[in-house]
Design a protein around this nucleic acid. Structure first.
Length: 816
RNA sequence: GCCUGGGUGGUGGAAUCGGUAGACACAUCAGACUUAAAAUCUGAAGGGCUUCGGCCCGUGCGGGUUCGACUCCCGCCCCAGGCACCA
């Protein structure tokens, strides 16, 4: 069991030895592992989750360790407070990241990933996190992605997974689809070939159907404000109207979405996206050549450079004309690439007087720019030097003149609606989630195409659709998806008619793997179902989730979406997966983000080797506020190292007696401070408070007493778990400290000192400090203040006009 | 351009329901121990002035509110991250 060390002489703190010993004991005793049975019956479950890592070939970097340590500390804190804490970890190993690395290094991902996972596991054990290694997940294992495919099928059945055409970045040299991040300055990052836009038929999840719920639920979540705001912006709900313009000479009409129906009288032209389906029909013969040429140019441009704001506006007149339903006037219809097919209706009513982009366009092409809104000190004829988008009242707007713009929005929408020319509409910036990847390293999408039956889902009983191990996984000139080159894999029979069928050869997005992994952890090992209903009910939703803010939008939004869908389909009984989320900060080096190209990457292993995991953990948390991150400096690590060493010496050399009165007061104040700070993730100040207390205990070389130092063991345990175990054991405790010790309580009476230092100010400047009894009355305090020589100097010969008294804090005498 | 954070000693950072600015730590300096050094322990320290009692200045810049502002309000500058022609 534990080692017995009752030797009177205190041995030196030896982190590697202590840490090795306790990691062995934890492992042997299953200190941090749950059996499936125990998971079912836990009394005070607390699900402590951290974002699982992508197991890179470089191993854990300081950023990972920082994130995991902060989360682990919180879990250990909750455990000491009496919760049954489940803290799992896993590996997010599919995706373009792994695949690109494999392509570069020439090692197959099926070989690379297990190797990386092994290295990560070793490092994660070394830092002393209390992971339940019996409940771990690897997204690339068939036992896991079988259920990822199952999730896809649930969405497919609910008609929330649909196949449709969408534009993608296409490199004509690599013959592959590129993510937006892989397009650098309009060129392929790998071969520098100019990237084109292509339309491909792909699978989408209809997340936009959930936009309102995803937005409205945010209010109920205990999440960092910045994260909630980022999600709200991403969803981008906007209220407005869809207004219909009749096309002259046809039965067609063009619908445009606008948030400014109040400016309809100023809509002097329309603009369609180059891809808009009506372009062909409305283009007049004499404009045809120019229009076609422009559309060709727009198509050749990649998605990224197409959406550059600073680019000068371009466009051509189609020759077509439409009727402004408010004014009855004919307006020209143009096409321009500043209008995007992907938002609204792909067509806009241009109001150059009150929209910056339209103003720029109208100026360049000499279109008329009337004013229809007048702000303060403006009227109907005030010239427009630039687009005016501020508040005001309507002008040049017929019967609506003089109306406030806010009131005008619904009024004009109603008025147009009566004429059948408009309806109110809400729009979202959020797009449907494209989950198809024309790549190799991901779970195959479990769909078959049968010549007779059409699109057929793979029966759940036949899952997983195993990703075949192929050597030529590199996307090359032969086709779209690497799997599409393997007939022996994709040719199969239809489960419905038995006829010949072809498998879907695209794989799914990595974000799908991570959109449900937290549901799997407690049910790992169950091969009947993705998540056991009973266990899931016991542990979910997640009590605390900690991760990087770079996932504030995509991962967290997708996870919420999938959870909502599974809730709607009756698989789970909650619709929000993470009750509390906190984003941790970023560790930088020399003021810059760590990166290989900068050469400022800190390799944690050496520090852990030299100082131990406990010191490294404590140091990382001491750098700065956990939610803000900080600057890694080698020199700073000796602070926490000295602290832990002193703590070791102090605890082990304490004399066996109760706490001294004055020290006891400080002890209770420290417990209070540390407890509050832990809950708020203010780890840096919690550590500082413990350091300060230790300094008090040792002040002037006094001999510490057992009652003074014993409570420090559980307090420091979340940061330095190995050291705490060893001290706890040497003080006679049974292992583990995390099960046998309790987080100490503080007595509010004892936590406050009997004497207070009262600051005396004269006209707001500090002139003296008085030590007085707590709760001293104003009169007595003022009298004492006036008796001070240095106060007298500034009061003498003047009259005291006002006495400000803040009990137990300060006196301010206003003289003049 | 928009949205988040943030700007405090030589350095990382404390203190924001307005009430002693600089806790804690690093680096620095001095002392103790040592033949010496390292380690350890003790102490000093925002800047300037000082008759050694203290005084003045000081939280990115400029205004304001207040008895009192790092904290609140208005207007700027700078840094980091995210979004970006979303009509």
């Amino acid at each position: 069991m534990t080692q017995q060390s009752t030797s009177p002489r205190v041995d030196r703190y030896n982190p590697p030895e202590v840490e090795r010993l306790w990691q062995e004991i934890w492992e042997r005793n299953g200190t941090n592992s749950w059996t499936n049975e125990a998971l079912r019956t836990a009394e005070k479950p607390f699900y402590n989750l951290m974002m699982f890592p992508y197991p890179s070939a470089e191993g854990l970097h300081v950023g990972n360790i920082y994130a995991f340590t902060g989360a682990d500390i919180y879990g250990r804190f909750q455990r000491l407070r009496g919760h049954d804490v489940f803290e799992p970890i896993g590996f997010d190993a599919f995706g373009i990241h792994s695949e690109n690395f494999a392509l570069k290094s020439g090692v197959h991902p099926t070989e690379l990933i297990p190797r990386n996972v092994e290295r990560f596991t070793k490092q994660l054990r070394r830092i002393g996190a209390m992971y339940d290694w019996d409940h771990t997940v690897d997204t690339t294992s068939p036992e896991y992605y079988r259920w990822t495919q199952w999730v896809f099928l649930q969405l497919f059945r609910a008609k929330l997974a649909v196949k449709k055409e969408a534009p993608v970045n296409w490199c004509p040299s690599c013959n592959t689809v590129l993510a937006n991040e892989q397009v650098i300055g309009g060129e392929c990052e790998r071969c520098d070939t100019p990237v084109e836009m292509r339309n491909l038929s792909q699978w989408f999840f209809r997340i936009s159907d959930y936009a309102d719920r995803l937005l409205d639920n945010l209010e109920t979540l205990d999440w960092s404000d910045s994260t909630k705001k980022a999600q709200a912006n991403w969803i981008g709900r906007s209220e407005g109207a869809e207004i219909h313009f009749a096309v002259v000479g046809t039965e067609q009409r063009i619908s445009a979405y606008t948030t400014r129906p109040d400016t309809i009288f100023g809509a002097t032209y329309m603009v369609l996206a180059p891809e808009h389906p009506l372009v062909d029909e409305i283009t007049t013969p004499e404009r045809r050549g120019e229009v076609d040429e422009y559309r060709e140019q727009a198509r050749a441009m990649d998605l990224v450079s197409r959406q550059k704001t600073e680019k000068e506006k371009t466009g051509v007149d189609t020759g077509g004309r439409a009727v402004n339903p408010a004014t009855g006037q004919e307006v020209p219809v143009w096409i321009a690439d500043y209008v995007l097919m992907g938002y609204g209706t792909g067509a806009i009513m241009a109001v150059p007087g009150h929209d910056e982009r339209d103003f720029e366009f109208a100026t360049k092409f000499d279109l008329s720019i009337p004013r229809v809104i007048a702000g303060e000190d403006q009227d109907a004829s005030t010239p427009l030097e630039e687009a005016y988008s501020g508040p005001g009242h309507l002008v040049n707007s017929g019967e609506f003149d003089g109306l406030d713009w806010r009131e005008a929005k619904p009024r004009i929408t109603d008025w147009l609606a009566e004429k059948g020319a408009a309806e109110p509409r809400t729009n979202y910036r959020l797009h449907d989630w494209c989950i198809s990847r024309q790549r190799y390293w991901g779970p195959p999408i479990p769909i078959l195409y049968c010549d007779d039956c059409g699109t057929v889902p793979v029966p759940e009983s036949e899952l997983p659709v195993v990703l075949p191990e192929i050597e030529d996984f590199r996307p090359d000139a032969s086709g779209i998806s690497p799997l599409a080159r393997h007939e022996e894999w994709y040719v199969t029979s239809c489960p419905e008619c038995g006829g010949r069928a072809r498998r879907e050869t695209d794989v799914s997005d990595t974000f799908l793997d991570s959109a449900w992994y937290f549901l799997r952890y407690p049910s790992v090992g169950n091969d009947k179902t993705p998540f056991d209903p009973e266990v899931t009910k016991q542990w979910l939703p997640v009590d605390s989730y900690i991760g990087g803010n770079e996932h504030a939008v995509l991962h967290l939004l997708y996870a919420r979406f999938i959870t909502m869908v599974l809730n709607d389909l009756g698989h789970i009984d909650f619709e929000e997966p993470f009750t509390r989320f906190r984003a941790h900060g970023l560790i930088v080096k020399d003021g810059a983000k760590m990166s290989k190209s900068r050469g400022n990457v800190v390799v944690p292993d050496e520090y852990i080797e030299e100082f131990g995991a406990d010191t490294f953990r404590t140091y990382l948390m001491f750098i700065g506020p956990y939610e803000e991150g900080g600057d890694f400096r080698d020199a700073g690590i000796t602070g926490p190292y000295n602290f832990l060493t002193r703590l070791w010496d102090t605890v082990l050399s304490a004399e066996d007696s109760e706490a001294d009165g004055a020290v006891e007061q400080k002890l209770h104040a420290t417990i209070r401070k540390v407890t509050e700070d832990m809950e708020a993730l203010s780890y840096n100040t919690a550590i500082a408070a413990m350091m300060e207390y230790l300094n008090t205990v040792r002040a002037g070389g006094r001999t510490p007493r057992r009652g003074e130092v014993e409570p420090l063991v559980p307090l420091v345990a979340p940061f330095a778990p190995h050291l705490a175990e060893e001290l706890w054991s040497r003080l006679g405790g049974k292992p583990s400290v995390f099960d046998e010790a309790r987080w100490p309580d503080f007595d509010p009476e004892k936590a406050t000192a009997d004497e207070v230092e009262l600051v005396v100010q004269v006209n707001g400047k500090v002139r003296a400090k008085l030590t007085m009894e707590r709760g001293v009355a104003k009169e007595e305090a003022v009298a004492a203040a006036l008796a001070e020589d240095n106060v007298q100097r500034f009061v003498e010969g003047k009259s005291v006009r006002k006495q400000i008294f803040v009990p137990d804090r300060l006196i301010n005498l206003v003289v003049g």
